[in-house]
Amino acid sequence: MFAQQIIWFPSQASTTASRVDLLLYMLTTICGAVGLSVAVTLIYFAVRYRRRSNTPTPAEMRGNRPLELFWTITPMFIFIGFFVAGAIVYFDAYRAPDDATVVYVVGKQWMWKFQHPEGQREINELHVPVGQPFKLMLTSEDVIHSFFVPAFRVHMDVLPGRYSSVWFQPIRPGHYHLFCSQYCGTNHAGMVGTVHVMEPAEYERWLHLNAEGSMALEGRKVFLKYRCISCHSADENARAPVLEDLYLRPVHLRDGSTVIADDDYIRESVYDPGKKIVLGWDNLMPTYKGQVSPEEINQLIAYLKSLHRGETPNRVEEFAPPAATPPINSK
């Protein structure tokens, strides 16, 4: 690729990189050519038709309609082409493939924390296999960060209190720099990491050597730890909505609106349960904001994704739901 011959360009290490670079070259080349031609023409006319003492005043021009139409319509079609090319790259980069592996990412002053669906956890390092698409679900534990891997041409703001996402498919094994590109405090420059792209066989060995409980299994532990089962019991004694087969389903609310039970909805329901009350239920749930950590939220979401009809754990007590929540990581 031409980009790799320019030493100040990062390598093209993802399927998105070449398309982003091609768009950049097209914009730079065409805009540069137009700007240069305008400058050269301007200089030529300034010299060629400069005022001279022995030259009579030229006749007034009334315009040239074909020329005016040409320099108006031609740039319009050029910029429409820019827009279409940019839209194609944008929509391709926006929507991850359906078979993409989801990895949850938490930005925190001043580190990146990753959790794989198989349960592996990493700090400031991310291991992925070459040739497989990955979708990163990003959130911040404190301030605004920005996830940036130059070699992949991926860049996404990471916001507290909500999820954003970005995806990539690596095409070349290697080790690639990861940066926070949004100033986030005194040690912002130290918020860096590395993405390790491995051959599939090597990645499988890494998975087995670093195996932990899956995110769904850890999420089940979170579900039981905070006694969610006291209300979301999915039986005749349930005090709160059934969570089985909930993920990405429409949820009808008391105010007459409908929302989709995605990652942001689940997160908001844990931290601010009174904001969107499900139709037909009272809000008995206390807020867990400041109690359930972002990592536990991600694990709980993974568990709810896997929770199907008839799989809700059985209640083992008959106590009332908790009126308050325990501190984070309390035993």
Results as ranks from 00 to 15, higher is better:
251 V>P: 00
228 C>W: 10
270 V>N: 05
248 L>Y: 14
224 L>A: 14
226 Y>S: 08
239 R>S: 13
176 Y>R: 04
238 A>C: 08
232 H>V: 02
184 C>D: 12
261 A>T: 07
228 C>M: 08
242 V>G: 06
282 D>A: 14
179 F>A: 06
262 D>E: 09
226 Y>T: 06
172 R>Q: 15
273 P>R: 06
242 V>K: 13
251 V>D: 00
240 A>N: 02
247 Y>F: 14
173 P>R: 00
195 V>R: 00
203 Y>N: 00
181 S>F: 09
218 E>Y: 13
250 P>Y: 00
176 Y>C: 05
245 D>V: 05
220 R>E: 15
211 A>M: 12
207 L>P: 05
204 E>F: 01
193 G>Q: 05
203 Y>L: 03
167 W>C: 03
193 G>C: 01
200 P>Y: 04
190 G>F: 01
176 Y>L: 07
239 R>W: 09
188 H>W: 12
258 T>S: 12
280 G>V: 05
283 N>K: 11
236 E>R: 11
244 E>A: 08
178 L>E: 05
236 E>Q: 13
232 H>Y: 02
228 C>R: 04
200 P>C: 10
167 W>I: 06
180 C>W: 03
170 P>G: 00
202 E>L: 07
279 L>H: 15
222 V>K: 00
193 G>N: 00
195 V>L: 05
249 R>M: 03
174 G>S: 02
178 L>A: 02
252 H>F: 09
210 N>T: 13
243 L>H: 01
233 S>H: 01
197 V>I: 07
239 R>F: 10
218 E>A: 15
283 N>H: 12
188 H>L: 01
223 F>Y: 15
198 M>G: 03
211 A>H: 08
261 A>C: 02
169 Q>W: 04
253 L>V: 00
205 R>A: 08
199 E>V: 08
200 P>R: 08
265 Y>T: 08
249 R>W: 02
207 L>E: 11
278 V>Q: 10
264 D>V: 08
211 A>V: 06
206 W>Y: 11
273 P>T: 06
228 C>T: 03
218 E>Q: 11
173 P>C: 03
278 V>K: 04
177 H>I: 14
165 S>D: 14
